[in-house]
């Protein structure tokens, strides 16, 4: 993991030049009162300090994944005596299927959910943000209401529904809800973003004779890249970490996803294999971390780069 960390550092530095090009010069030249390096230096100091503090648990996780299980809780702190790779090799192979299978399953679920959310939520959001239709306010209220009820009382009726459709132990119960825009969080998020896009832009397109599908696809969607990226990143992470619904709907071990596999190292009634658990936690963090590093490029590709109105 230390290797990865360093590599990650490298990538992000390269990426910076690309992402921050649009507004390179202004911030320093405007304020000549102090030497030009003081402000950035202080900022770096502050950011590095807080960042390190915030990362302590993460670093501890990485370090502990390299310790033998019985040493993990005997020596606290970040100083590492041994460099135990066996947690990684054990963790990868000790469950009934290699860990790569769980990673693959999680990836499939995640991809399905991302595509589903991007398509269906952006469509619904366009309707709520831009179209006039009957009962709009009530539908909006209903949409928000659907995320106000705790999942624990919905999950049993929902399970019965999917079970009667014969969909238990498939990925359908995990992906279909996203394809059908049940994640009101993202609909609302996109509504807010679309409402931030100047209306003159779609009016211009309308005057050019574009219908709603084309305005949506050719004007709105490109302008809401940050919101789409946010949705994709969040969907990725939430689905990647989601435990409860995956626990209920996936029964065969060959269908298990990462969160289920990680819990397979635990047993509250006897002992937990912390070493392999930490090692595989680190492994499962790498994809989301990389996705984020890569994804932020889209997150910050806002309309400011095109100049707005």
């Amino acid at each position: 993991m230390t290797d990865t960390q360093i590599r990650v550092l490298g990538t992000s530095d390269n990426e910076r030049t690309a992402s921050d090009l649009p507004t390179p010069r202004r911030s320093r030249s405007r304020y000549p009162r102090r030497p030009s390096w003081v402000r950035p230096f202080l900022k770096h100091l502050l950011l590095l300090g807080t960042g390190l503090l915030m990362l302590y648990p993460v670093l501890w996780l990485v370090v502990s994944s390299l310790r033998p299980t019985d040493e993990i809780f005997r020596n606290p702190g970040l100083v590492i005596g041994s460099f135990e790779i066996s947690n990684y090799t054990d963790g990868w192979t000790t469950l009934s299927h290699p860990f790569s299978m769980f990673l693959l399953n999680s990836t499939l679920v995640v991809l399905g959910c991302i595509v589903g959310n991007l398509v269906s939520c952006s469509m619904a959001a366009y309707a709520f943000a831009r179209l006039k239709f009957s009962g709009k306010k009530w539908w909006f209220v209903i949409m928000l209401t659907t995320i106000m009820l705790p999942i624990h009382v919905i999950i049993v009726p929902q399970y019965i529904l999917f079970s009667q459709l014969g969909w238990v132990n498939t990925f359908i119960p995990l992906i279909l809800p996203k394809v059908l825009a049940t994640d009101a969080f993202f609909v609302f998020l996109m509504v807010q973003f679309i409402r931030g896009i100047p209306r003159e832009l779609d009016e211009a397109a309308r005057l050019d004779g574009c219908g709603h599908p084309r305005i949506f696809a050719q004007v709105i969607l490109p302008l809401m890249t940050p919101a789409l990226a946010t949705t994709a990143i969040f969907t990725f992470i939430w689905t990647w970490n989601d435990f409860f619904s995956q626990l209920l709907y996936l029964t065969k071990p060959e269908m298990y996803t990462v969160p289920l596999a990680l819990r397979a190292f635990m047993d509250a009634t006897s002992s937990t294999s912390w070493g392999p658990l930490f090692a595989m936690s680190v492994v499962s963090l790498i994809p989301i971390f990389l996705i984020f590093l890569f994804g932020q490029r889209f997150l910050i590709a806002g309309i400011s780069t095109t100049g707005g109105k």
Binding site: Y159, I160, R263
Partner: peptide
């Protein structure tokens, strides 16, 4: 034999839900 395993907490949540849906192992 199709195996199905979970940690202690998840196990009981899942078993209750499956039993409610007439779908227990």
């Amino acid at each position: 034999i199709e195996p199905q395993y979970a940690d202690w907490n998840g196990y009981w949540d899942k078993l209750a839900t499956e039993t409610a849906a007439n779908d227990s192992p």
